[in-house]
Simulated assay, not measured.
Amino acid sequence: MTVLRTIARVLLGLFLLAAGIAHLSVLRTEFRAQVPPWMPLDADLVVLASGVVEVVLGLALLLAPAGRARSVVGIVVALFLVAVFPGNVAQYVEGRDAFGLDTDRARLTRLFFQPLLVLWAWWSTRPASLERRGTIEG
């Protein structure tokens, strides 16, 4: 199970790193579609800031040592994914196209993947010691 969690953590780290770089470059305009109009900050600033955060979190997932530090990174990543969820909801509610999500059905379907990403962040970074103590089933 440890190997599977490591693979999952590395994949999530690479995904966040790539998404962060895309925020800062080639998909900057697409990511603006996810910034709700009620956000009191400039949409481009939100995209750039979230891109930097994603790069940092992706690197942290890849580089954090096992144990408490990695667990903390997983919790921070999970909280970040919860924090950006309103942007995904706004994209659906307001019918804004981005990333090939050009129908209400596609935008709605995407919403169901965010909780899976949150669980992925938590599961892939939790300490193996919790399983050894019998606290959490593998």
Rank of each mutant, 00 (worst) to 15 (best):
R5C: 01
T6Q: 09
T6H: 09
A8E: 04
R9M: 00
V10P: 05
L14P: 05
L14V: 13
L14H: 10
F15Y: 15
F15V: 05
L16D: 01
L17I: 06
L17T: 10
I21Q: 08
L24Y: 13
L24S: 08
L24A: 08
S25M: 07
R28I: 04
E30H: 00
E30G: 02
F31M: 00
R32S: 10
Q34W: 13
Q34F: 12
V35W: 02
V35K: 00
P36K: 10
P37V: 09
M39S: 13
M39H: 15
P40H: 12
D42E: 14
A43V: 06
D44H: 11
D44R: 06
D44Q: 11
V46F: 02
V47S: 05
L48M: 15
A49F: 13
S50F: 09
G51H: 07
V55N: 12
V56Q: 07
L57N: 09
L57R: 10
G58Q: 11
L59I: 15
L59G: 05
L63E: 11
A66S: 06
G67D: 06
R68A: 11
R68L: 12
R68D: 15
A69I: 07
S71G: 15
S71V: 13
V72E: 09
V72D: 05
G74H: 03
G74D: 05
I75F: 03
I75V: 11
I75L: 07
V76Q: 06
V76D: 09
V77W: 02
F80K: 00
F80V: 00
F80I: 00
L81R: 03
L81F: 07
L81N: 02
A83F: 01
A83I: 02
A83M: 01
F85P: 01
G87R: 01
V89L: 11
A90Q: 02
A90K: 06
Q91R: 08
Q91L: 05
E94T: 10
G95P: 01
G95N: 05
G95H: 09
A98F: 11
L101V: 03
L101E: 11
D102M: 06
D102L: 00
T103F: 09
T103H: 11
D104P: 12
D104V: 06
D104H: 14
R105F: 15
A106G: 13
L108H: 12
T109K: 10
F112I: 04
F113C: 11
F113N: 14
Q114F: 13
P115M: 11
L116A: 14
L117C: 12
V118Q: 04
W120C: 11
W120E: 12
W120I: 06
A121I: 10
W122M: 11
S124H: 08
T125S: 14
A128S: 14
